[in-house]
Design a protein around this nucleic acid. Structure first.
Length: 561
RNA sequence: GGCCCGUUGGUCAAGCGGCUAAGACGUAGCCCUCUCAAGGCUGAAUCAUGGGUUCGAUUCCCGUACGGGUCACCA
């Protein structure tokens, strides 16, 4: 077989050689230890929480080491491509602090363009580059054309329909698949010429040189040493449209673009033998690999499952919608990525997470469950440390988009809103009422007549007359100008006049001696003023609501009793 | 089914041959307190399993079970 002839037959339009490519993309000159990593999504939808994980690692590693972090768009599957997805991906990533030094970037007009010397950064535009290497492989007898038609492969494809997996005899399938593939190898030049003459489409397959009986060892930066069989599968390098598969594009691009660390989800682990073989065939140096454990969710049977696109919390835009601020999500991601992050953060509260020395060694090998409790806790801490002003600004942005009615109320009186948000803020032990912006309205809505409602009833077990008397006495003695002590003194006086304990300790000592205590009296007033049994400090609440409205609400409550 | 990976409390996890097996979230109780949110204190709860190796295994090796991933002209 004349492989040179075959290569020319298959790729007559390719005139450049791999050497030309090496010249076009010279090795990067970076300091020792600098990591070049990339995020390489396919533009098929939104950013997935599972994608934020490896991209955060890649970003940290590159920027922490003074290296390069770039974005490559893997748009090799035109069928699945979604209009505008790439743009959305870049924007979302940016809100989570994932910024690229190089690659596909968004220009001022919101269009994607290239930045950097190793482009194009969209794989669909690198066709001839891949074909140059494919031609070389054919020339060396390491790859060959396969003219199998779609129909012929269709029956094999049936195996991959998930529902049928259980009922399929895998052994038989695997053998038949292998037989078909091997049959492709036995072609003659005449056959190829004949197919080509008739314009039949073909794919280029690798001529797998591996022996599945033989094991090779490989070291993954996260997983450690793993052993797997050599690749013996003639997988597709170039699809019939001349565009490469992931495997081939990965080898060519990551080599040419100088990637030092390939950071990806662990679902790629099984295809590692393919990649090792390909890099070997192409004479490329294998990059370092990090296969990151997946984020899991619990399915209806209580089993862990890979977080998939449909799941709650998968789409990063969901977090925006739910009102999580990006800092909280980033920090949560860090706690999952590096177990010692929390410890570090406790000691460095004022520093951003980017100051944390991220360590590959500390990464977990096994997949973890997504935990909203933990996210909420992280988020509460972050929000509690913000100034009232900052909370106001961010809350407003969220509300304007997702709860315009609330947004309008906030905008109408900024001073009041900031005052409300300032309650219990600052100092060593700030209040932690909010985990998300969506928590704000339920928490503070009662301050505004627009959202005020009698949500809770009065505490049970008390005489309605006592509640009435409490409210009316309070109205009589209420003075907006009172300071807190004076104010509370009056509440206590009401308690005593009605036979309620004004001193909690005294009440606890002998509860049977009283009808109730000041807390109950306060609760009557609180419900009347806020419509809720639980609210921040009543005195402060009344100061913000104002004398007039406070009185009005109590009067209304009295009427309703 | 083949091939890979994994398994410390409900969750995230420290651990790296000898410890009363950290810590965080959650949870229970108590304290503080005008309720809540905090804060403080206390508690319950973990090494999947069977064999080795060893004076000694959560830690090392092998098997088993369970869980996960993957097996496309998708990435």
């Amino acid at each position: 077989m004349d492989f040179n002839h075959l290569a020319e037959l298959l790729f007559p339009h390719i005139t450049e050689t791999p050497e030309d490519m090496e010249k076009r993309f010279p090795r990067r000159e970076l300091p020792e230890g600098a990591v070049v990593s990339r995020f390489a999504p396919s533009p098929t939808g939104f950013v997935h929480f599972g994608g934020l994980f490896p991209s955060t690692v890649a970003e940290r590693l590159a920027h922490q080491s003074g290296g390069v972090f770039y974005l490559r768009i893997e748009d090799t599957d035109a069928k699945r491509e979604v209009e505008g997805a790439a743009e959305g991906l870049i924007k979302t990533l940016a809100t989570y602090g994932i910024n690229f030094d190089e690659g596909a970037i968004l220009d001022e007009s919101g269009k994607i363009s290239d930045k950097g010397a190793y482009g194009p950064y969209k794989q669909s535009k690198r066709g001839t580059i891949y074909q140059t290497f494919a031609k070389q492989l054919v020339r060396e007898g390491k790859a060959y054309p396969c003219f199998s038609t779609e129909e012929e492969l269709d029956e094999l494809a049936q195996v991959n329909k998930k529902e049928e997996i259980k009922n399929t005899d895998w052994q038989a399938e695997a053998e038949s698949r292998r037989a078909k593939m091997l049959a492709q190898r036995n072609f003659t030049m005449e056959e190829v010429e004949e197919h080509l003459a008739q314009g039949h489409p073909f794919v280029v397959r690798i001529l797998a040189g591996g022996d599945a009986e033989k094991k090779i060892k490989f070291t993954d930066l996260v997983k450690g040493t793993i052993e797997f069989p050599e690749n013996d599968e003639d997988f597709v390098l170039l699809k019939s449209d001349g565009i490469p598969t992931y495997h081939f594009a990965h080898a060519v691009d990551d080599h040419l673009m100088g990637t030092t660390h390939v950071i990806r989800g662990e679902e790629w682990l099984p295809s590692l033998p393919k990649h090792v073989q390909l890099f070997g065939y192409l004479g490329f140096k294998l990059p370092k690999y990090m296969h990151i454990a997946q984020i899991m969710r619990l399915d209806e049977n209580g089993n862990k499952k890979k977080l998939s696109k449909r799941d709650m919390g998968a789409n990063m835009d969901d977090y925006t919608r739910m009102g999580y601020c990006p800092e909280a999500v980033c920090e949560y991601v860090m706690t999952l990525l590096n177990s010692n992050y929390e410890e570090w953060h406790a000691k460095n509260q004022d520093k951003p997470y980017t100051a944390f020395p991220f360590s590959v060694k500390k990464m977990s090998v096994s997949g973890c469950l997504f935990d909203f409790n933990k996210l909420n806790d992280v988020s509460k801490n972050i929000l509690s440390r913000m100034s009232a002003e900052e909370v106001y600004e961010k809350l407003s942005v969220w509300a304007d988009e997702f709860d315009p009615e609330f947004g309008a109320v906030l905008a109408a009186d900024k001073e009041k809103a900031v005052k409300i948000l300032a309650i219990g803020r600052g100092g060593k032990k700030p209040r932690k009422d909010l985990a998300t912006w969506a928590d704000a309205k339920p928490y503070m809505g009662f301050f505004y007549d627009e959202f005020f409602a009698m949500e809770d009833s009065y505490p049970a077990g008390f005489d309605a007359e006592d509640i009435k008397k409490t409210l009316s006495s309070f109205l009589e003695t209420y003075n907006y100008a009172d300071d807190m002590n004076t104010w509370f003194g009056k509440v206590k006086a009401i308690a005593e006049s009605l036979g309620f304990a004004s001193d909690m300790k005294a009440y606890k000592a002998s509860p049977e001696a009283y009808k109730g205590n000041v807390a109950d009296i306060s609760a009557f007033i609180r419900v009347a003023v806020t419509g809720k049994q639980n609210a921040p400090d009543l005195y402060t609440v009344m100061q913000i609501i104002g004398e007039e409205k406070t009185r009005a609400r109590i009067e209304n409550a009295l009427k309703a009793l």
